[in-house]
């Protein structure tokens, strides 16, 4: 079932017998494999398959229950969670939120130079928010908010980009613009991992896919992974939570 990535490429992220979960219950079970540098990988699977948990763990926000995960330092990872817990009532402008992306470079004290500020303005315009620089974020629509968060990801300039359901509740126009940014990151040899439920979108735009259902169902070329039998198998394995489950024998 496992289709390993081409060897010979530099590895960005590696899993070894990785089990992730909450309070001892696994959400992702015994995952092995490597993600090469520069990969553009979609992560698919039913609800409860462990997709978000996997991204959270790669971002450094969740420690493994067992096994190991090797990923770049946090500052080299740009992570957009599924429901970004951004407080839109805070009186702050689009430009300032996008400038937050400079945190890893400038930290708490370093001045933001004129050149960097130009980069921030460039990112705002790259996501199609020209003229919105001084708008307070409470006045933005859902799509504009997502564009703003993508501009912040641009500014983070990270070698690994993790996006969790970035196209949920986003219209076709905005999705197309954001997909163009993802393609640009791919061209720049960044490693991009995107969780998505939209299989058509994945087939059209992502060369590689990891199909997850609490464990790896398939991985490799998207057209080889998103097959009817694989998807049926993924559906049958989703969302198993047993309060009385025995201790996993493989963990011993």
């Amino acid at each position: 079932m496992t289709q390993e990535m081409n060897s010979g490429h530099a590895v960005a992220i590696a899993f070894h017998d990785l089990t992730l979960g909450y309070e001892g219950h696994p959400a992702v079970h015994h995952l092995d494999g490597e993600i090469e540098k520069g990969a553009l990988l979609a992560i698919c699977g039913p609800n409860g398959a462990g997709k978000s948990t996997l991204l959270k763990s790669i971002s450094g926000a969740l420690s493994p229950l067992s096994g190991s995960l090797s990923a770049p330092r946090r500052r080299d990872i740009a992570y957009l969670p599924q429901a970004a817990d951004i407080d839109t009532s805070f009186p702050i402008t689009v430009l300032d939120v996008v400038a937050m992306g400079l945190w890893t470079q400038c930290g708490p004290f370093r001045a933001i130079s004129g050149r960097r500020l130009e980069e921030v303005r460039g990112a705002v315009s790259a996501v199609g928010l020209n003229g919105f620089e001084d708008r307070v974020i409470s006045t933005l629509s859902g799509g504009q908010l997502q564009r703003m968060l993508f501009a912040r990801l641009l500014i983070q300039d990270a070698s690994v980009v993790l996006l969790d359901e970035p196209f949920a509740a986003i219209d076709a126009n905005t999705s197309a613009d954001l997909l163009a940014l993802i393609a640009r990151w791919h061209d720049e040899q960044r490693t991009v991992l995107v969780v998505s439920h939209d299989l058509d979108l994945v087939r059209d735009h992502f060369p590689q896919t990891l199909l997850l259902a609490r464990e790896q169902v398939a991985r490799g070329k998207t057209s080889d992974v998103l097959t009817t039998p694989n998807l049926a198998r993924a559906r049958s394995r989703a969302e198993a939570f047993d309060r009385g489950a025995a201790v996993c024998a493989r963990a011993a």
């Binding site: 946090r74 969670p81 407080d87 300032d96 937050m100 890893t104």
Partner: peptide, 20 residues
């Protein structure tokens, strides 16, 4: 001294947590 970190932590605590 705290200002920048405090603003970011208030607007988007998840972002600050994901970067360090």
């Amino acid at each position: 001294l705290l200002y920048r970190a405090l603003v970011i932590e208030t607007v988007d605590p998840g972002f600050l947590a994901s970067t360090g």
